[in-house]
């Protein structure tokens, strides 16, 4: 098992505001799982950062790909 969280799935989901969102599932080294919903901008950025053109390509990507390109205020 890898020693950091990885993406294990991504599905299109209906957002509260009626927009399509990406529901990304991550698995952590202890076996725990978490989901985070991201908007279109972040979703397409994630696909670009991972160099994939299909959602299935996100599987196995490290969690930090999700932060790449994000305009952070305190962490790089």
């Amino acid at each position: 098992m890898r020693d950091e969280a990885v993406i294990v799935g991504a599905e299109i989901a209906a957002g509260h505001d009626g927009a399509a969102e990406l529901l990304v599932t991550l698995r952590y080294p202890n076996g725990g799982r978490a989901q985070v919903a991201i908007d279109a901008e972040a979703g397409f950025a994630l696909m670009r950062n991972c160099g994939v053109s299909d959602l299935s390509g996100l599987e196995g990507q490290p969690w930090r790909r999700m932060l790449e390109g994000a305009e952070t205020c305190s962490m790089s």
Partner: peptide, 26 residues
């Protein structure tokens, strides 16, 4: 239930499983 709405004015994740559509609409 929750409906999803989109137009081609902005890229929507509705097309996220269609790489060519994503490339064009972005």
């Amino acid at each position: 239930p929750i409906d999803i709405s989109f137009s081609l004015l902005r890229p929507s994740l509705f097309f996220a499983r269609l790489p060519r559509w994503v490339r064009v609409l972005r």
